[in-house]
Design a protein around this nucleic acid. Structure first.
Lengths: 194, 194
DNA sequence: TATTTTTTATTGATCAGTCAATCAATAAAA
DNA sequence: TTTTATTGATTGACTGATCAATAAAAAATA
């Protein structure tokens, strides 16, 4: 019983379903059928709206990126000092939605996919650059440019590192511990400048 | 023209080929045929010696782990002060063979595989624990236990973070820069204790 | 020593299963 | 009547795994 205007609804449902499926499965080698079933539609419909599996996965990745970006922007609104801005960025990186096992699995899977897919690499690079820029801008009032850049690189690596380690349920570091260690890194580096 | 005693030769060739194929392909979804071709044998032979693709991949991962471990042990022999030991560990993490694109791709792929495969997760956990232990042992003379642990966690995350970022050929940080930033993190943290 | 038997090495052919993609068909809305 | 929504059925390609067949080396036996 087809109702009109389903396209955006189905697209969103399929992207959400893809994320869920990737998370459950722990990799991008999920089938269109799995995703479609999760979304409550047929695999044919998924192809109808996205053309190909690759395209659906890229849209999923875009959604992940957008989610992160929105979270950052939201948190930055309430941050008024440079240090608060740094904390906001860190907090978002480790907040519950980003740190959910399925989200982590998806990010990891996309990192791997970036080895092969130009488009995925391009999208991940955007994330990397945005994070870097945000960090440098927040650090700029607290450190000279060269130093701000280097701290930003260290922080970014630390965030990604904690992130992938969380993927192995083996390194039992709490969210709070990850945040504390990252904050502490910044503090240590800034203190040395004073 | 079968010669006797081929088993160890073929096993090694196949594991090397798997690593190469994974590196080229950028993921674990390589076919047995690809791996076998790379090793110059038939796919049937690969099955003959390893039983299954999964087993071959696990052996490949083991080889990667062993290589890393051997490198660490080798470097630690020449390191006599605590700080030298730390530098040795860092140097190995970023040395050319570990930082080769195909090696990085393989590590990344295994991180993803760990989401699904118990055995892979177990192996990766060994790497994580070993690295942690090595770092803590080296740090112990320089910092109280609790602090040593925390620095070790930060360093480990940083290493892994730089690592996966290297996978995206987008974040152009040289090996030397990664080493310098990691060393610098340790220095900053230790200075604060003095 | 000459022979037969067993073990090891190796592959081409093939099976059985999976999966992305396509398409024709159906039906409700416009 | 055209457009939008939807699916079941099917196709075509791929792939992990198996197996029978071949041949050389080694071991056993005569």
């Amino acid at each position: 019983m087809p109702k009109i205007g389903m396209e955006p609804i189905r697209r969103k449902a399929l992207v959400d379903a893809a994320l869920k499926a990737i998370g459950d499965h722990g990799s991008l080698s999920v089938t269109m059928s799995e995703i479609a079933r999760q979304a409550g539609v047929s695999a044919a419909l998924a192809h109808h709206y996205f053309g190909s599996k690759e395209q659906l996965l890229i849209e999923t990745m875009r959604a992940l990126l957008r989610q992160f970006h929105d979270d950052v922007v939201g948190e930055l609104l309430n941050a008024h000092t440079p240090r608060e801005r740094l904390s906001a960025i860190i907090r978002v990186s480790f907040n519950a939605s980003q740190f959910a096992p399925e989200t982590i699995a998806a990010w990891l899977a996309f990192y791997v996919e970036a080895q092969r897919s130009e488009e995925t690499r391009r999208l991940l690079s955007i994330y990397v650059r945005r994070l870097h820029t945000n960090l440098v801008v927040a650090l700029r009032p607290l450190a000279p440019k060269a130093e701000a850049t280097r701290i930003a690189e260290g922080v970014a690596a630390m965030i990604d590192g904690f992130y992938i380690r969380q993927g192995l349920r083996a390194a039992p570091l709490s969210i709070e511990a990850c945040i504390a260690l990252t904050e502490d890194y910044i503090t240590s580096k800034l203190e040395r400048l004073a």
